[in-house]
Design a binder for these strands. Structure first.
Lengths: 121, 121
DNA sequence: AACCCTCCGTTCAGAAACGGAACCTACATT
DNA sequence: AATGTAGGTTCCGTTTCTGAACGGAGGGTT
């Protein structure tokens, strides 16, 4: 019943209590997908299927990451339809405050990670 | 002999060719440790053992991440001792340019991820 | 009503990544 | 010769992720 992610403190949860704020930030976004979900939110996406199509991540992981982001208060989940009960995910204040960091990453990527074609097949 | 990390393009390498600069940035730092190594570099650390003590990451993973960061041009590896051949790792230009993003993350962590004691045992 | 569609997930098996500990190499110290 | 230090590598078991299929609640179509 309880979150078994909580149950046994992994390296992830250890980061959450680190003295360094960067490490604590990484305890939320320190994986391949979470930050990209946040980015998609900044780009106006808000629904499960939108994220899934955009990222190509497995539904399983996406489901987990969204849950985590909501738990962490980065996203807010609310029903946008009542008849077929459907939820979407939108940035909270905490999430919107991520903008500067995201811009920093964007600028760095833009400057230092030029797109290179995958080696010709 | 060749890097087998290269051999089969995993999800990681796909990110490196993504249209979005944030995604490309994540292809470098999108894991639990890499960014923290970079942070340590900003804090003046430069040697394997220093990183290892600071992060508590396994030597195996640390070794891999350092190699990756050097390949990516974020760090530069140079021999600081010749007699017992020893290397250290220092930020390149590309690495130093990471400062704004790092500061963004630090500010966010500071504001939104208060240190909470690990639940009392 | 029977059928198919959409949305938001969950389940399962196999593959990849990670963690912990021991080991290795090269030199220096005692 | 034994011990220590720095920078890794190897081995192996555990955790996490992927890919693909399945579920279930509702809607729309015929």
């Amino acid at each position: 019943m309880e979150r078994n992610r909580q149950a046994k403190a992994s390296r992830w949860d250890e980061l959450a209590t680190d003295w360094c704020p960067v490490a604590r930030a990484m305890s939320v976004i320190g994986d391949r997908w979470t930050l990209l979900i946040v980015r998609d939110c900044f780009l106006g996406k808000s629904r499960f299927e939108e994220f899934q199509k955009s990222l190509g991540v497995t539904r399983h992981i996406l489901s987990d990451r969204l849950k985590r982001l909501v738990e962490q208060g980065v996203l807010e989940r609310n029903a946008y339809s009542r008849k077929p009960l459907r939820y979407d995910y939108r940035l909270s204040e905490k999430g919107r405050d991520f903008a500067p960091a995201l811009i920093g990453l964007k600028d760095w990527g833009k400057k230092h990670m030029p797109v290179r074609k995958p080696a010709a097949v």
